[in-house]
Structures are given as C-alpha cells and as structure tokens.
Design a binder for these strands. Sequence first.
DNA 1: TTCAATAGTTTAAAAATATAAACCATAGAG
DNA 2: CTCTATGGTTTATATTTTTAAACTATTGAA
Lengths: 112, 112
Amino acid sequence: MSELIKLKHEFAKSSDFLVALGDKKRQNIIIALMNQKVILRGLQVTDLVEVTGLSRPAVSHHLKILKDVNLVDYRREGTKNFYYLTHENKEFKKMKLLSEHVMEVVKCNRQI
Amino acid sequence: MSELIKLKHEFAKSSDFLVALGDKKRQNIIIALMNQKVILRGLQVTDLVEVTGLSRPAVSHHLKILKDVNLVDYRREGTKNFYYLTHENKEFKKMKLLSEHVMEVVKCNRQI
DNA sequence: TTCAATAGTTTAAAAATATAAACCATAGAG
DNA sequence: CTCTATGGTTTATATTTTTAAACTATTGAA
C-alpha cells in the first residue's frame, strides 16, 4: 500500500478527533480539566457548567463528543461523575505522528 | 504566564486549522493535492471537482477555507488557478508542537 | 471587440450541529 | 420508601455550515 493511501486512512481516522479538538468550547472544557492542581479527582458536569458558562445539557453533549474520541473519561461515584482527561495520550500521539507523516510527504513533493 | 494559559492560546489559535483539517471532504482535496507526481504545477478547481465529486462552488468554498488556514495556496496563470499545498508546513509544525505540549502537561497531571 | 473558458461570489435552500427545556433514571440520605 | 441531588436523554428550536444555482469578473483567442 502506498504511503499516500496510508496517509489518507490516517487522516480519515483522525477526522472526528480533529473536529472535536478544534471546537473552542470543547477546548475550554479540556483546559478546565487540565487545570486541576495537586489532587486530580476529576470535575463534575456542574463544575464544568460553572467554568465554561455553558448549560448542563451543552456540557454533557460536548463531554460525550470528547469521550467518543477518547479524549476524556469519567469515574462514577454515587450519583456523581468525575470527568478527567485520558492520560495515555493515544490520540495526541497519533496527532503528532500524522503531522510528521504529512511533513514527510510534502517535503518530497516540492513545488517547482 | 503559566504553561496552561500558553497552551490555551495555542489551542485557540489552532482551532480553525484543526476544524479545517478534520473535514473529510477537505482531507480528500488535500490528498489529491499531494497525489501529484513528478511535475507539481498544482491542480485547478475543475480537476478537483472531478477527483472529489463535489460541485465547483463546493470545491471553491473548501479551498477558501484551506487557504484561510494557510494549508493551500495558488498560482494564477491566465484565467487558471493552480492550487497546491503550502510547502513550509508551518501549520503542521504547530500541530506537532501542540500535541507535544499537551502530552507534557498531561504527563505531569496524572490521575491518582 | 466579441466569444469561450475559468473560476470567484452571492443568494437561497438544505443539512448538520448545538442548544435549551422538559423529562427520566439512579444513588444515597433521611 | 420518599425526597433530593446529580446528570443523562429526548425533543423541538436555533444556529451554523454546506451546497447548488445563478450571476459576475477576468483572461486570452478568434
């Protein structure tokens, strides 16, 4: 399989992730989840409502999107859900690889 | 300025680029632009219409979005516009840096 | 200078996405 | 068991994005 076909698939697979990450409201949620010092037990939906200024269903909706692309996960404690960023960084590793692969291909394909 | 605030800005600045890159139709345009062997004179809108199966205004629209985030550029020859991928890869370099920075922050912020 | 080719723009419609309101489900306290 | 807190889901609406059709502009050839 050619490099380009591989890259095409790599692109397609990263599509949902890139769109999820591109949204400014979701970026704010991500930043809020990063911004937890010392004891990282995660943030509840209501915490994120406060931080982001979005409504609860909106936060819930965006969290679902972020969860679907493996950017966040949550832990349930009683009736409370504590959301946190997934820490294996799989998706960001893929994102790094994608950018590297693109640059390799473009480097060989210089404009004359 | 804290690392996190910097990262927040880095995220925000990459927002349009990520969304532009996440769209599958635009990915197809990008792949088509990469898929030019030997003599790289660029592709015209009509070429891209054929390759992608989109209408001309749609291709034109997506090219504008890709151009706005510095992913493509074009060269005019008479009435023809030849589109090509920008070859400095500035945006992909930023994308690589962004993923690295996120991983650094998340690494320090481990879940207990 | 008129015609054909190329491609951008505007406008209107269609599709997708995001939001809020109302509702439902579950866990734990009393 | 009942009540409250938390938060997910459904539905209807609003907004945004995408698309196509029609129009316009520009270049070069006849």
